[in-house]
């Protein structure tokens, strides 16, 4: 009896959280002119479409949002690849060597993620303007690649790799880059995936920075393009909702694919 009421309560909460997304998906499958037609009065048709159409999605392909979504994918992918290379080498430098000033360097890494990025986005954007990086992909990618949190996460994982393994490899004549490439990286897949997810989500979810630095048609990112469309007088809400679905489903697929690592990286940042 108690179990049953708990699962009913859980179900009510779950469905309440899900309703807005369901409404968005449903309306992305019907013409924009009908978005508000099913709201008064509310009925099951508000949340279900029996004759779904994909016209909004095909219209999306040739719209500004389609292009912007592609830009988001390019920028996020570049951030993950470059960012992982930079963060993993740095974490290796911090974990594998004993040297003077290591504490100081580690302190800088921690300090850098204690200053929230959005707070310094405006001063940084005036610097980028001076360096002619506005409306360039480099300008959009750069702030994402040096991620103190990702370095921290990778370092924690690297510290667990036994020193004997490294010594043996060194005696066999492996260089330090070889140790990094052939011992540390292959052993650290979960941490690398966790850090990669972190870099990806930072970039995919960004709004302040792309709004400040990349707003021309060639460089605009998905969320900025979507909010521009919403601000217009005659908005096609079918298109807006289809764009919202695409911008949500892409990270959802990535998170779901790496679910195990996502929860791991989330819980390890929380508990340490």
């Amino acid at each position: 009896m108690k179990r049953a009421s708990l699962s009913v309560l859980g179900g009510v909460v779950g469905i309440l959280f899900f309703l807005p997304l369901l409404w968005v998906v449903t309306n992305s499958l019907r013409p924009g002119s009908e978005t508000f037609a099913n709201l008064n009065p509310l009925s099951w048709q508000t949340f279900l479409e029996l004759r779904p159409t994909l016209t909004n999605y095909s219209a999306l392909l040739n719209s500004a949002i389609g292009r912007a979504t592609l830009n988001s994918i390019v920028v996020s992918a570049a951030t993950v690849v470059i960012g992982l290379a930079i963060c993993a080498t740095a974490a290796f430098g911090l974990a594998a060597f004993q040297f003077r000033g290591r504490g100081l360097v580690f302190g800088i890494v921690v300090l850098s993620f204690l200053v929230p990025f959005d707070a310094i986005a405006i001063p940084l954007s005036t610097m980028f303007r001076d360096w002619h990086l506005t409306n360039t992909f480099a300008g959009l990618v750069l702030p994402g690649i040096g991620n103190g949190m990702a370095i921290f996460l990778l370092r924690q994982f690297f510290l667990g790799i036994p020193a004997e393994l490294v010594e043996a490899a060194r005696l066999d004549g492996l260089g330090w880059f070889g140790v990094f490439r052939w011992i540390y990286l292959p052993l650290s897949k979960p941490a690398l995936i966790g850090a990669g997810l972190m870099l990806f989500l930072f970039q995919w979810q960004a709004y302040v920075w792309p709004l400040l630095i990349g707003t021309d048609a060639k460089h605009i990112l998905g969320p900025v393009a979507l909010s521009n469309l919403q601000g217009q007088n005659f908005t096609d809400y079918g298109l807006v909702f289809a764009g919202a679905v695409v911008l949500t489903v892409i990270p959802l697929v990535v998170i779901a694919g790496f679910q195990r690592y996502f929860v791991q990286s989330v819980s390890s940042t929380g508990l340490k």
């Binding site: 807005p20 979810q205 969320p223 909010s227 919202a244």
Partner: peptide, 11 residues
């Protein structure tokens, strides 16, 4: 309940 995490805040 977790699902909205995937949606970017601006979206």
């Amino acid at each position: 309940v977790i699902l909205p995490i995937a949606t970017p805040p601006a979206v």
